[in-house]
Structure formats: structure tokens, C-alpha cells
Design a protein around this nucleic acid. Structure first.
Length: 691
DNA sequence: CTGTGGCTAAACAGTA
DNA sequence: GTACTGTTTAGCCACA
């Protein structure tokens, strides 16, 4: 009963051990969806997690808005660089704040998270998606930084050549200020995000670890230098150009310039150089840009404008551009410095990209997930897609299933070992896997849960961490009519989960077993065949049909034939309510309050049989309570199931708390005195039969 | 150690 | 006869 909640409790406990009230917001969100109910999850945790979630959403919106603003501003300011304009759409990609913090989660921290053994495939999927989006975002940011760096250089140059093209200069300044604002806000969001994570205990700062969360755009990134340049550039602007935005630049420097930021670059900024546009350069190199080789696609010339960082001089034709280039951007200290700055920027970005690619690869390797990053790294990976279940593993031992990422016993690949090659052996020597964090019936998986990881389970041959009952319920609820035939359920499983595309006999049998075993699944028959519906209320109760109950198969052929070959009986019953006329009013009420919304599609004005069955069952349960008080000593062996039998709805032994005796109200209809059911369990206490 | 719940396999029965 | 569907039971395992 508390089995699965134990897993959740464990995750919370792990988080608490880290000194916070919750886990990763991702984890927390997932667990929130999964784990309401049993009250073991402190309400405060849920509240905190939701708060974090809201914060995340807000941050995400802000980030999106920022990018949108940037695009609009650049459009309004009439950017002369078509290339840059071409880049703009990429910036519209939704950006998660978490994605902006590529270094937020170090490999050690990731490992730490994983070792907490609370990651579910859903959560892993989210992480992977984030990481993939991160890569994309990083590339965009790199482009953006690069462009802005060029603009920065232009600005520096223009300061030197004062009075030159003041209008364009102003536009560029506006642009830069916008970017500066973005930088600031991005970093603020990052810090906010980091603090949130830290509060939740996801980020545990090791004693010897630097204050990572306080490092904006952490290691390797160039923003520190960029911000310094921004500051210097904007400080040179006149007051009317920087009203309001200047505060940002100040904030930026105070907030983001961190001396503790790992500066792996050899770039040395001369604090005084900016005043005269000079940067101290020690080893100038690579200034040859081979401009003339491709005159029509010169990276520094486009749309009649020189695209040298910070220049944007109008050149009517390519020849004039070359002339301008040679005159204004000749080989001198200034140009060399600009090149060097740009080079450092690019190098840092490349380094950062390489690091994150490596991290992504390690994560994917660890999680045994097929990489979606094309050739992210040259490191070979044998991921799930290349893993074929060995016959011995998949057939000889049904327990030797590919472990799910949520499996506590799953071996965590130490990231420090570097990308590992996941072999078939390693995939299947992990022992039995039984973790389903939605095992608890009162913790139904939501559509979002599965939808969120739809692609993951479709492609990764990973066993979904849901019980069969949960999945069956989900399949049924996803259907338009909230009802499925057995074969449709099969199809749903194979369609939604790669895992269920093999060993069909096993899981199909399990599905059938679950359909029969769980009270929540209601089989309804009509002239077209039979289909299954789900009683969600019953599902949440999580009750099984008791073992040892009389088999549904009735040796009494008269009875069976009566119901089996008379599907119309169901319809008749639906219309006439022959068996429950005395309960009609109460039945209506029961239907109204008993999970009817689940069947809204079919229950409009004409309740489905599933509804009817559910309602009848509930009504019978209720009726039992009444009859119990009067007929507690009724003749044993008259199962209420027999009463429900005519509608071919799975007979439900009544719960002990709801029913202690037979239901005489309806058993009289079709019950023969010598019904074999009596004999089947005549030795069993009635109550046991009834649960 | 025990109880509980989920999974799997198997037996069995009915139906198409 | 076969495949499919549905029911039931037993045994195993993980977990609390």
C-alpha cells in the first residue's frame, strides 16, 4: 500500500538530507504529479516545489520576452547586417532559464542527483531534453555573443573616431544596451534558478567547491570580459543615450563581474585601454583574414556595410569596402587587439561548447539513452538502440528486464569514469527490476506524465516505470470514448512504448491479468464485442479482486448463455433498469458523483454501459450497506456478483467495509438455487468472498 | 520476518 | 484446430 510512496518518501528524504525541503524542481514536479495521496509527502514540500515551478515558469517567460525584445529592437534599429537578421529566428526558440545555466549542474552534481536514485525516466527525459535544448541555446548564445562582441569592437572603434556616423552609433548603442539588459536579466534569472535549486537541495555545494551558484554563466564563458567591455563602452556614451539603461550596466558590473570566476582565458584587458580604444596585446596573431578571396561572401561585408566589429561603415561597393578595410582596419595594435578579443571569445565559447557536449554525452551514456545530438562527440556509445536483449535475459528470466532509470538498484555510471560503453551485459546483469513509482493506484499517472516522456518511451527500450494497471488506465482514458478493446490496448502499448514491442506474450498476458484482476477495469459487452472501461474512482482506491473468489466462469450454462448470447440484455437493462429500479434515483446520484466526468464523451444524456456498470456497482455497494443492517445473516453463497453478471460487467466482490452480506435485491433475478458458485467457495467465509 | 502488492507464467474456459 | 480473450492461481520478488 505504501510501497511506492516509499520511493517518493525516499526521494524527499534524500533531498532533506541535503538540507532543503524538496528535490530538484523537475523531480519535484514529477513526484508531485505522481505523489499526492498518502500524505507522506509533506505539504510544505509540495508547496515549495510548486512555488519553484511557478518561479521557473515566470523566469521562462521573462527569458522568452527578452529574446523577443532583442529581436524587435534589432529590427527596429534597422540592423544593416542581413546575416544577423538571418540569425534572429533562432533566437526565438524558447529558452528555459535552466538551459541558460549550462554549468549549473556539474558532473559531480549530476552524479549526486543520480545517486539519490530518485530520477524517473520522466525526469531523465526532462533532463535530456533540457540538455539538448541547452546545446541549441548555447549555439544561439554563441552566435549572439559573437555578434555582440563584434558590435562591441565597433563601438570601441567609433569612440576613437568620434563623431563618425552618430546615428548609427546611437542605434548600435541602443542595441548594446538592450543586450546588456538581457545579460543582466539572464544572469539574474540564472542566479534565481540556482538559488532555487540550492534551496531544494539539488545543488549541494561541496565544502571545497567554489560558490558555483554565484557564478553567472559559469566557467569558461566570456561574459565577464564582455560585461567589462560593455561597461566601458556604455560609460563612454552620453547620458541621453543611456538613460535608464545605464543602471543596468552598473548593476551588471556589480552583480556579475566576479573575480572568482574561473578565467581560463589569457586575455588581459587593460583597464585603461578602453579609454583610447587600445587593448594590450601580447601575442598578436592571425590577423590575416583573407578578405579578398571571396569577395562576394566576405564575412566582413554585407549589404553595403562594413561588418567589422563596431564599424558598420557604409561602403557602396566591394571595392570601396576593401579600401575601407585596408585603411580603417589595417594591421595595427587596435585591429590586432580586436581580433584577439574576438578569438578569445570564440575559443571560450568553443571550449564551453565542448565541455557541455562532453557532459551531455556522459549523461546520455550514463542514462543509456540514444543520443539525439548528431556526432556530439567522437566518443562511441553503445546505447539502448544498439542493445539487444539477450535471449537469456529477456526470456529465461522475466525479471531480468532492462532496468529503468528509476531503479534504485540501477548502477550509476560514475561520470568520472568518462563515457562508458554500455554493453548488453551491463544492461542485464543488474538484477530484478521492480520499481514503478506509479505503482500506487491512488497515484494515477496523468496524461502529462506519459505525454511528457512520450518520445522517450517510444524510442528508448526502457521499461516504463508504471504498473500495468496505470498504463491500461491511461490507454483507456486517452481513447476518445474512454473505452478500448483488448486489442486496442495492446496497440496502445506497442505504439507508446518501445519496450512493449518485444516479449508480447509476457506483457499481453499481464495486461489481461490486470484487466481481470483489478476492480477498476470494467468489461462491457455489446453487439460489436467487448471493450474495457476504467472506473477511476476505483482505480484510485487500488483494490484488487480478491484471489480465491469464485471464478467468473459459470458451469451453469443456462446462466452463461443467458448473458453471453443476449447482449441486448445489457441494453434492455440500461433502458429499463430492471434490476435496479428501486435504486434508480440513488443510482442517478451515484453516477453524477462517481467519476462520470471520465466518461463525458459517451455519457452525454445516455450513460455508457461502463458508467452504468460503475454506477451499479457503487449503488450495489451502497445497497449492501442497507441490506446488511437488515439481513446480516442472509444465506451464504449468494454473491452479489451474480447479480451484476447479467450485464456482463465484471462482478465485484464488495468491500468488507461496504458490504458484509449478499445482495438479495438483485440476486433473485437470475439466480438459480443450485448455482454452482455456491459450491465453489462454500467452505469460504462469506465475508471473504465479499472481501 | 512478515505482509502486501506487482509481475510473470501457466492452466483453464469460452469464443470466433 | 487455432488464435484470441478472459479468469484465476501460484510463485517470485521488492519493499515497508
Amino acid at each position: 500500500m505504501m510501497q511506492e510512496s516509499g520511493t517518493e518518501t525516499k526521494s524527499n528524504g534524500a533531498a532533506i538530507q541535503n538540507g532543503s525541503s524538496g528535490g530538484n524542481h523537475l523531480l519535484q514536479c514529477a513526484s508531485l504529479r505522481e505523489g499526492r495521496s498518502n500524505g507522506e509527502t509533506p505539504a510544505a514540500d509540495a508547496g515549495a516545489a510548486e512555488l519553484v515551478h511557478v518561479q521557473q515558469q515566470q523566469a521562462l517567460q521573462v527569458a522568452r520576452q527578452l529574446l523577443l525584445q532583442q529581436q524587435q529592437q534589432q529590427q527596429v534599429s534597422g540592423l544593416k547586417s542581413p546575416k544577423r537578421n538571418d540569425k534572429q529566428p533562432a533566437l526565438q526558440v524558447p529558452v528555459s532559464v535552466a538551459m541558460m545555466t549550462p554549468q549549473v549542474i556539474t558532473p559531480q552534481q549530476m552524479q549526486q542527483i543520480l545517486q539519490q536514485q530518485v530520477l524517473s525516466p520522466q525526469q531523465l527525459q526532462v533532463l535530456l531534453q533540457q540538455q539538448q535544448a541547452l546545446m541549441l541555446q548555447q549555439q544561439q548564445l554563441q552566435e549572439f555573443y559573437k555578434k555582440q562582441q563584434e558590435q562591441l569592437q565597433l563601438q570601441l572603434l567609433q569612440q576613437q573616431h568620434a563623431g563618425k556616423q552618430p546615428k548609427e552609433q546611437q542605434q548600435v548603442a541602443t542595441q548594446q544596451l538592450a543586450f546588456q539588459q538581457q545579460l543582466l536579466q539572464m544572469q539574474q534569472l540564472q542566479q534565481q534558478h540556482l538559488l532555487s535549486l540550492q534551496r531544494q537541495g539539488l545543488l549541494t555545494i561541496q565544502p571545497g567547491q567554489p560558490a558555483l551558484p554565484l557564478q553567472p554563466l559559469a566557467q569558461g564563458m566570456i561574459p565577464t570580459e564582455l560585461q567589462q567591455l560593455w561597461k566601458e563602452v556604455t560609460s563612454a556614451h552620453s547620458a541621453e543615450e543611456t538613460t535608464g539603461s545605464n543602471h543596468s550596466s552598473l548593476d551588471l558590473t556589480t552583480t556579475c563581474v566576479s573575480s572568482s570566476a574561473p578565467s581560463k582565458t589569457s586575455l588581459i584587458m587593460n583597464p585603461h585601454a578602453s579609454t583610447n580604444g587600445q587593448l594590450s596585446v601580447h601575442t598578436p596573431k592571425r590577423e590575416s583574414l583573407s578578405h579578398e578571396e571571396h569577395p562576394h561572401s566576405h564575412p566582413l561585408y554585407g549589404h553595403g556595410v562594413c561588418k567589422w566589429p563596431g564599424c558598420e561603415a557604409v561602403c557602396e561597393d566591394f571595392q570601396s569596402f576593401l579600401k575601407h578595410l585596408n585603411s580603417e582596419h589595417a594591421l595595427d595594435d587596435r585591429s590586432t587587439a580586436q581580433c584577439r578579443v574576438q578569438m578569445q571569445v570564440v575559443q571560450q565559447l568553443e571550449l564551453q561548447l565542448a565541455k557541455d557536449k562532453e557532459r551531455l554525452q556522459a549523461m546520455m551514456t550514463h542514462l543509456h539513452v540514444k543520443s539525439t545530438e548528431p556526432k556530439a562527440t567522437p566518443q562511441p556509445l553503445n546505447l539502448v538502440s544498439s542493445v539487444t536483449l539477450s535471449k537469456s535475459a529477456s526470456e529465461a528470466s522475466p525479471q531480468s528486464l532492462p532496468h529503468t532509470p528509476t531503479t534504485p538498484t540501477a548502477p550509476i555510471t560514475p561520470v568520472t569514469q568518462g563515457p562508458s560503453v554500455i554493453t548488453t551485459t551491463s544492461m542485464h546483469t543488474v538484477g530484478p527490476i521492480r520499481r514503478r513509482y506509479s505503482d500506487k493506484y491512488n497515484v494515477p499517472i496523468s496524461s502529462a506524465d506519459i505525454a511528457q516522456n512520450q518520445e522517450f518511451y517510444k524510442n528508448a527500450e526502457v521499461r516504463p516505470p508504471f504498473t500495468y494497471a496505470s498504463l491500461i488506465r491511461q490507454a483507456i482514458l486517452e481513447s476518445p470514448e474512454k473505452q478500448l478493446t483488448l486489442n486496442e490496448i495492446y496497440n496502445w502499448f506497442t505504439r507508446m512504448f518501445a519496450y512493449f514491442r518485444r516479449n508480447a506474450a509476457t506483457w499481453k498476458g499481464a495486461i489481461r491479468t490486470n484487466l481481470s484482476l483489478h476492480k477498476c477495469f470494467i468489461r462491457v459487452e455489446d453487439e460489436f464485442g467487448s471493450f474495457w472501461t476504467v472506473d477511476d474512482e476505483e482505480f484510485k482506491r487500488g483494490r484488487h479482486i480478491q484471489r480465491g473468489r469464485p471464478r467468473k466462469y459459470c458451469p451453469d450454462e443456462n446462466f452463461d448463455e443467458l448473458v453471453t448470447h443476449n447482449p441486448s440484455l445489457i441494453k434492455n437493462m440500461q433502458s429499463s433498469h430492471a434490476y435496479c429500479t428501486p435504486l434508480n434515483a440513488a443510482l442517478q446520484a451515484s453516477m453524477a458523483e462517481n467519476s462520470i466526468p471520465l466518461y463525458t464523451t459517451a455519457s452525454m444524456g445516455n450513460p455508457t454501459l461502463g458508467n452504468l456498470a460503475s454506477a451499479i456497482r457503487e449503488e450495489l455497494n451502497g445497497a449492501m450497506e442497507h441490506t446488511n443492517s437488515n439481513e446480516s445473516d442472509s444465506s451464504p453463497g449468494r454473491s452479489p456478483m451474480q447479480a451484476v453478471h447479467p450485464v456482463h460487467v465484471k462482478e465485484e466482490p464488495l468491500d468488507p467495509e461496504e458490504a458484509e452480506g449478499p445482495l438479495s435485491l438483485v440476486t433473485t433475478a437470475n439466480h438459480s438455487p443450485d448455482f454452482d458458485h455456491d459450491r465453489d467457495y462454500e467452505d469460504e467465509p462469506v465475508n471473504e468472498d465479499m472481501e
